[in-house]
Design a binder for these strands. Structure first.
Lengths: 337, 337
DNA sequence: CTGAAAGCGCTTACAG
DNA sequence: CTGAAAGCGCTTACAG
């Protein structure tokens, strides 16, 4: 590959001048510009991003850390939130470097990534990476709250407790008492927050939370989300009473729907169903259409990117953001007679 | 941030030695290693990826160019194929830098990305980028065949003509004559290839291809894939006769299914449906379960990554790969009485 | 408007 | 096993 030196030589100018022609950081005369551009074209020269990054100490790349399981799948939530990140970064001139867990734990292997900042999805409990980015002085924004909560770190999250409360309030309000809650994996803050919201709804309605049945997704037990919903309904139905189901995602709801059809349970006539959803278009293609909670994954990603971009440019401001999820009532719930 | 110089000074060694401790490229005594590591820890030193990349002329990053529309959505196919790329790259020590179209067309703005190679999804007709990567001497692998076909470029693709042929053969073989083909957008090579395969099936069965009705997805007309299927069925049914539908993706099939329910058309009794699918789990959650074509998007991505990794390491070998799609028969088709 | 030179933080022959 | 020095390909004050 031709370098800036080659071009400078061929055009008969200094490399500072060539640099300026491409970066436009200082004015270069038309004549010289033309000569440089021609030389560049002749040599097939393109500026080297890496060298430039080293010199200016910026890469214009944002890192995105996803907890992608080795089996490769990515949920609709992850996909959409990634879409939000990419779109916002692109709009502001940043690229996105994707990374998946787990990082090796050999401290010798760490290096400062070629990024100006990092967005990290679903931090673990006491995630050591949070502190490490601090040490490296790399701006960090979480998607999902830190656990334990730490006001000093930037993050975006849904109001998950509110989600649990709202859905519970809705179902209890139309007469249900016994609800099967197919919750997320128990080690996630979302699962904890939503369950405590649901408990609060029960309390508010003066019903013991013991009336609810809470299950958790487990990667070991369930081969995928739809399967989780399907199996959970088959295993629980008849053994314990419930008249409504809250499904963690719409894939889970799809499984519930299929199991209900096989069991001959009409939804919503004999069983109400709400999905803490992540795929608005999918929810409208089922029969009945699903009552869901709009999590706004894409917005979450976009907000995270905005905050990160501010931080990378040393712009002060609010560096935390709760995106309100809201209940979208469609056809899958009915008052309990 | 501390640099290698700081560490060298504090540990009382040369920076070459510090470098070797971290890279392990030449042996360093235990004693010195310990001293260096301690100094590094004290200073909070982490090697700088960018500087290293410049020195070794490698970034260990693969670029992934996705044609993501500005409205942000990513199809299941794209998601899965991305998953395949990421997984394979990660396994081989590469990171993935994501990029979306369109690139600006100001030649002054191009720079050599900080990548060792590029995977590009859905190249356009006569895509100028193909040549440009050639100039830059950056290894390139396409997902989707080049248009026009060019044996010199590396790519992975489904055997799309075969897909059309196989599905057509299946439907015509069980007695259908008139098929509604809800094809992809007309400017895509997949759409062209699949349609010509379907035409060949008609020919093979001695039925004029005019009996088929071919529609194309259009970003302007349809707000999403499910909507395309839904609207297409509503608009076409009754006006022109057909007893089977081939839907471009399972989202399209979902829309068809919903429209059929609304029209009171039983699937598969009165209408057969096959999806050129991209989401195997989804297809199993509908009623009836969808007969689909397994495109193996993830495998396609993984294969592209493998080829790219070979090229980046100058390994000779086959640099083209057709991934066979195969028909998975479930419950959504029935012989025409 | 342009040039000469130092610097960004690493790696790697070369020498010992 | 370790050091001194040149080099990777840019940018950027400083000087004119």
């Amino acid at each position: 590959m031709a370098t800036i030196d080659d071009v400078a030589k061929l055009a008969g100018v200094s490399k500072g001048t060539v640099s300026s022609v491409f970066s436009k950081k200082r004015p270069i005369s038309q004549l010289v510009t033309a000569r440089v551009l021609e030389a560049a074209k002749e040599l097939g020269y393109f500026p080297n991003h890496v060298a430039r990054s080293l010199a200016i100490k910026k890469t214009l790349i944002a890192g995105l850390k996803m907890p992608i399981s080795t089996d490769g799948g990515m949920s609709a939530f992850e996909t959409q939130m990634m879409g939000g990140v990419i779109q916002t970064c692109t709009k502001h001139g940043y690229r996105v470097l994707l990374d998946t867990l787990p990082e090796h734990d050999d401290p010798t292997q760490f290096s400062i990534d070629p990024v100006d900042g990092v967005i990290m999805l679903n931090p673990r409990q006491n995630d050591p990476r949070i502190e490490r980015y601090g040490q490296m002085a790399i701006p960090l924004v979480l998607v999902g709250r830190p656990d334990p909560m730490d006001e000093a770190v930037c993050f975006v999250d849904n109001n998950n407790k509110e989600v649990g409360l709202q859905v519970g309030d809705y179902l209890l309000g139309i007469g249900h008492r016994s609800i099967l809650f197919l919750n997320a994996s128990s080690d996630m803050t979302v699962a904890f927050d939503r369950q405590s919201g649901l408990a609060q709804a029960y309390e508010r309605h003066g019903i013991p939370f013991g009336e609810a049945i809470v299950l958790n997704f487990s990667r070991k037990k369930h081969k995928n989300m739809a399967n989780y919903g399907y199996a959970a309904l088959l295993e629980t139905y008849g053994k314990r009473p419930f008249s409504a189901v809250i499904a963690d995602t719409d894939r889970v709801a799809l499984g519930v729907l299929r199991a209900a059809r096989e069991l001959g349970i009409a939804v919503p006539d004999r069983l109400s169903l709400v999905a803490l959803s992540n795929d608005a278009t999918l929810a409208q293609e089922t029969t009945p259409k699903l009552t869901t909670v709009e999590l706004s994954a894409e917005l979450l990603g976009a907000e995270a990117a905005h905050i990160l971009i501010d931080k990378m440019n040393n712009i002060e401001g609010v560096h935390q953001r709760i995106v309100d999820a809201k209940l979208v009532i469609r056809e899958s719930c009915k008052p309990l007679a």
